[in-house]
Design a protein around this nucleic acid. Sequence first.
DNA 1: CAGTGGTCTAGACCACATG
DNA 2: ATGTGGTCTAGACCACTGG
Lengths: 261, 261
Amino acid sequence: MNEQLKTRSARSNELELIRAIASEPYKSRAARPIWLQIYDRLADACAGGSLRQGARLPGENHLAEIFSVSRLTMRKALSKLQQEGQLQARKGVGIFVRRCPTRYRIKDNLRFSESLKADADRIETNTLELIRCSVSAEAAVGLGIDRGTQVIFLKRLRVVDGEPIYLTDKEFPACRFPDFETIYEKNQSVTEVYRAHGISQHARAETRVTGGFATSDDSRILKLSDRTPLIKVSSTNCDADGVPIEFTLGRWPLSSVELVF
Amino acid sequence: MNEQLKTRSARSNELELIRAIASEPYKSRAARPIWLQIYDRLADACAGGSLRQGARLPGENHLAEIFSVSRLTMRKALSKLQQEGQLQARKGVGIFVRRCPTRYRIKDNLRFSESLKADADRIETNTLELIRCSVSAEAAVGLGIDRGTQVIFLKRLRVVDGEPIYLTDKEFPACRFPDFETIYEKNQSVTEVYRAHGISQHARAETRVTGGFATSDDSRILKLSDRTPLIKVSSTNCDADGVPIEFTLGRWPLSSVELVF
DNA sequence: CAGTGGTCTAGACCACATG
DNA sequence: ATGTGGTCTAGACCACTGG
């Protein structure tokens, strides 16, 4: 069976499933708003696994017709599913089933891959940006350095089983790492950079957890819809002498992570 | 000046402020959707303090007219402000300015009031429910006890400067605390209950942080809109011998807390 | 009772991505 | 060129709250 046929057949299965889901009569509007009832059914199908991850849903107009509601009502249901990270809409393309909110357990003081490798099959780390610039206001406080100081800025994205899951901005005092770029580019490892600059140990000094909302950049990179709620984790790492050498600001989709301390 | 006049005058000031905010021309729709521009302006007024906390906004129809948009567009802007906890709508009543997302720093392993008392003027603890029942699935794991075991269930709400900020469900193994209710009712203190049952020390065994969305109960109690994003913190406390004696599930509005570890 | 926020409709235009 | 999701309108009915 060739690719095109497989795709067509799969898409047709999705359509049948949606039709089945939509065919049940609604409960009274007073009991639960229609858009929430639609949300419930789609969320169940999503969590139950009957909707394949990565599958494309019919268009909004089509969906509205299938569920016998106006497009706006349909959009309200879809919008909540997007906010929760179960679906992702791409303008001009379509709506796709995101990896369902698996929760990744992250143990503090363990490196990311260490915490995760038991759970996941494929973990990738993508380096999105590596430049030298002035320290951000937030990192200046964390690193205990003055505004205007030069830092090395590193933006990375962790992709687990094909889904972007964790976005980090790291800042390092530039004066400590003259050869950062050269070393980092060899194997994309910060630990290697540390070692090459004579830092054999490092420890986490403090971790702060807050909530917030995705900027449009964050949304784009994490393949989420705009203004999705996020969990933000900021932390400072120190060398053996207790001098700060790294400030990290990490962002997770709200329902995709469980931090354990 | 009597109360009614004061209220009327204050409300009129709010109206003038809103009119001023709305009078500026919009940027092009392509640059930023109108509803987001309205959101920006209201969020600024809210954060800048020009909108008094607790103030009531004009009705949606009126607001839509003032901002020269349809009611739906207006609602979209208001809805984002509600999701972020800056506004709160009460059906049949009106839309009110919530305490702006102050962030409360909570240090792990400190009791709530200890972490907070530096920041806040008035802290209240309201006991909402105190019953004996079967252990919840989540607490059963945390406490290491079997399903069906009896526990004491305690639901409390922390109110800081008049704003509900932190909602907790606590469960304690019933067999350990025969006199829980009697002791607790004297001064609303769990520590006192511990002491009365011969537990002089207790320590936090593990803390888990996740994100989630408010149930309709949560929303009502925390005076938030439905399905607002939350930060959830679950933790287990143990006695001196390391035996679990308390499981706590706490919920905060997403933007109202900063957890420090 | 009047006014509020919550829901829902039918229709329209736009910017965007893909073939 | 077509279809997609994103935005916006004008109008309607409902359930709820308060006086």
